[in-house]
Design a protein around this nucleic acid. Structure first.
Lengths: 234, 234
DNA sequence: CGCCGGGTTGAATATGGTCAAAGGCTGTGG
DNA sequence: CCACAGCCTTTGACCATATTCAACCCGGCG
């Protein structure tokens, strides 16, 4: 219903006044934050937190890869995104995690307990600003993901997936070769296709000399223009 | 690369220090904001802003429906979301709009020029907090959309679409009947399927007495349990 | 009354899903 | 250091489903 003043609505981020959590971090404040954080490790395949459980910490990846996903019916998991070093995750809604997180490789991360985090957030304006930037960033990524899922052609999806991975990697590493920490099954869950279709698409890209693979997790893009063209399909 | 202190990275929200824009609004501050806003109107089908253009304002819908979309190849448009009264849109990245916005019906909205908005944001901590909440909310919606797009069954997609619309509407209106301001083509662009498949799915839902339609834009859900079951497929 | 855009319906086709089996890495234990 | 086991991946055949192309229908508007 239209109101007499501008208004926006959103489901509460904090349950009442002390719950939930978000991401943060800017430049110099990180030392304050380091003080309240602990370093934790997760083994490959280990569950970091489960959808719907009480959210009591946020995480900032130091090294490794993490996937966040929501359980779809039939035991299927729809992956929301992959996260790497410097990424932040563990967002809550009304004090509960909205998706599950699992380590794709061995992972090292900072762990921020919500209880110590939240007061800082309220006190420090710059910190809040950092959070906003990060949230916008995540929103962009979610929209990219939706764009990928909207494609109706298997090759286009996989091609775009590779572009996304390369984009994300390039900001961190500078090798020509790209490393895929996740397996085909995870790629399938992310792109919304069957694992066999993912495999076929990879083989197709190889046969057409668009990419080459040293092994299943190390890919080189041979024909960037062609990859781009394929990703633009449908 | 792992750093010695916690750090997060995100593409800049503001180009240097005065550009870009976001959403805002909390409770009492809305009056200050009303002062800097103007009321604008758009006719059905009118373009509000185009992807990639210089972002100089954010909008808060008073009445009507808006769609945001990105142009995919072949003139296709992949719709990111539908927005209604109280929603905020016009997020920028590095000073440019990341998607296009078009009025689905006649629209009335508040318009916030970035230049007047941004100083307020920096000054007012509570405002920033409101922005964070809203961003989280949008992020959740984008992830819901991705979940929908990940479904591999046409009926499931349309069923879930109806649930999403109902959810969004229920918070505003309280009629039993739900109104779909967008046409079949828009629904197709949102659900990532062909417009014919959308039509067929609607007819299927009607034939199975899951929904009934007074006319093409007014739907009543007859069997909520069945709709839920269909949406849960795949 | 006839036109026009959007919507529905039908038939043929193509694409990806599913089921099934075989092939190749990896890591573990002897 | 080798052998084996198990899982991940690839490949093939078949099938279901959605896309495509095309015709027709309906409702609103001039």
């Amino acid at each position: 219903m239209p109101t007499s003043h501008p208004s926006i609505t959103a489901t509460a981020l904090w349950e009442s006044s002390n719950r939930g959590l978000t991401k943060l971090l800017s430049a110099e404040e990180s030392s304050q934050l380091a003080a309240m954080a602990s370093v934790v490790r997760f083994k490959k395949g280990e569950l970091i937190y489960a959808e719907g459980t009480h959210a009591n910490a946020a995480f900032n990846i130091i090294d490794g890869a993490v996937k966040t996903y929501r359980a779809a019916s039939g035991g299927r998991e729809q992956i929301n995104g992959f996260l790497f070093a410097d990424d932040l995750f563990g967002l809550a809604e009304e004090g509960r995690y909205v998706n599950s997180a699992k380590a794709v490789t061995n992972v090292t991360a900072y762990r921020f307990p919500v209880s110590t985090l939240e007061p800082q957030l309220h006190k420090n304006g710059d910190l809040e600003f950092g959070v906003i930037s990060k949230l916008c960033h995540e929103l962009r990524e979610a929209q990219w993901h939706a764009l990928l899922l909207g494609k109706r052609n298997a090759l286009a999806k996989v091609a775009m997936f590779l572009q996304v991975v390369e984009h994300g990697m390039h900001e961190r590493r500078s090798t020509r070769e790209l490393y895929l920490p996740m397996n085909r099954s995870d790629i399938a869950a992310y792109t919304g296709m069957s694992l066999e279709a993912v495999s076929r698409s990879f083989q197709m890209l190889i046969k057409q000399n668009v990419i080459a693979q040293r092994d299943r997790r190390h890919i080189v893009i041979l024909d960037r223009a062609q990859l781009h063209a394929l990703a633009a399909l449908r």
